[in-house]
Amino acid sequence: MFKIVSKQKIAPKEFDIWVEAARIAKHAKAGQFVVLRVDDLGERIPLTIADYDREKGLIRLIFQVVGKTTAAMSCLNAGDSIKDISGPLGTPSEVEKYGTVLMVGGGVGIAALYPIIKELKMAGNKVITILGGRTSELVIMKKECAEYSDELIITTDDGSEGMKGVVTEAMKMVVERGEKIDRCWCIGPSIMMKFGTKAAKELGLPITVSLNPLMVDGTGMCGCCRVTVDNKIFFACVDGPEFDGHKVNWDEFMSRLRQYKDEEKISMDKFEAEVGEPSWQ
């Protein structure tokens, strides 16, 4: 059992929890994730490690309620426990001193981007961060990302904060003003990563994305998370989750994400019928 020590709602349907998991905290690195099972009947879902505190033996998870498991998690409070957490899984981000790095994040992908921003900054890079969302309150972790960024650009679809528009426009703006970008990460909803990659191609930028396919074990044993990169099959759980965005087969990736849409709805409907309106509503 893994005890939740704190819980905070950081945006509509988005939660930020710290969990006791000493072993995971001890070994976690930026870019890695955990696979968790909320209770005995639960499924195994991957979540990025948003932060960790080695001394206190805590890991931080940020999640958005998108289905039954995350809805059930949103009903847990400090003092409650998550049944199983396994990690840190996946290959860590390649952090070194590149020069100037462009970090692009959206949605809960920002939680995955944040530890990489932090490590890249500590490795001596100039960090330019672009965070985007539909509206101001959906752009999470602004303050923390700002702390480790030389420049933070916010974009919102509705213009409620920062630039009105989407992250790709901010990417163009940064490049067009003459910034020489040595490496770029883009983490967010798959559609954002797809278009982020397209923009990077037009701008001549290398781009690393973090893929979040469906997973079961998360240790390379089942192949549920297979993705096609450079026309070869990789298992995102062990070979990734980070890949060269230019080489990812995006349409296939997005199609595989939708595989269990019908079953996910059955699960969610059942949850709402049994539990009632979840607390996030």
């Binding site: 009947l41 039954k68 059955i266």
Partner: peptide
């Protein structure tokens, strides 16, 4: 994951 007992178990 007891998928054959879906939706009692969550894994489809």
């Amino acid at each position: 994951m007891h998928g054959y007992e879906f939706p009692e178990f969550d894994t489809p």
